[in-house]
Amino acid sequence: MENTNEMQLIFDSRSSNESFARVTVAAFMTSLNPTVEEVSDVKTAVSEAVTNAVIHGYEGEVKDVIIRCRTEERTLYIEVEDKGKGIEDVEAAMEPLFTTKPDLDRSGMGFSFMEAFMDELEVESKPGEGTVVRMKKIIGKGRKLWTTQSL
């Protein structure tokens, strides 16, 4: 299709890669002409999903985290996948302030932030097999199209 673009990113589940992951997704979305606010929203959401994979999915083990991004017209689709231990109860995990690791100073706000900053959030998880977080955001909502004047 004409107006679509895709990318895939596979990296080690190290905390030092969290910044790399969100910056890469932010760079990928620039073709949609996002506002600074929209870029920040996406960066935060990606950071949350990747942090979850590192801390909870793999629990510190170094394995692959996979990010798939797709743009379709002005919609950005992001998938963050790990093949870690999975989530027993997805619904409970998505409750604000729910955390299985309070001793590590986890705030339990990860999924809440993803939900707040993206337009759609879907979590698919099987204990023992891994987790896929799917997010969608429409870029430039409520913004009027404009054209530059020719010189």
């Binding site: 920040s40 960066k43 935060t44 950071s47 949350e48 942090t51 590590l104 100073d105 986890r106 705030s107 339990g108 706000m109 990860g110 809440s112 932030f113």
Partner: peptide, 13 residues
């Protein structure tokens, strides 16, 4: 210029 739930966790802790 960037903060996520982990940052919030540090403050809460």
């Amino acid at each position: 210029i960037f903060c996520d739930s982990s940052g919030i966790g540090v403050i809460m802790g």
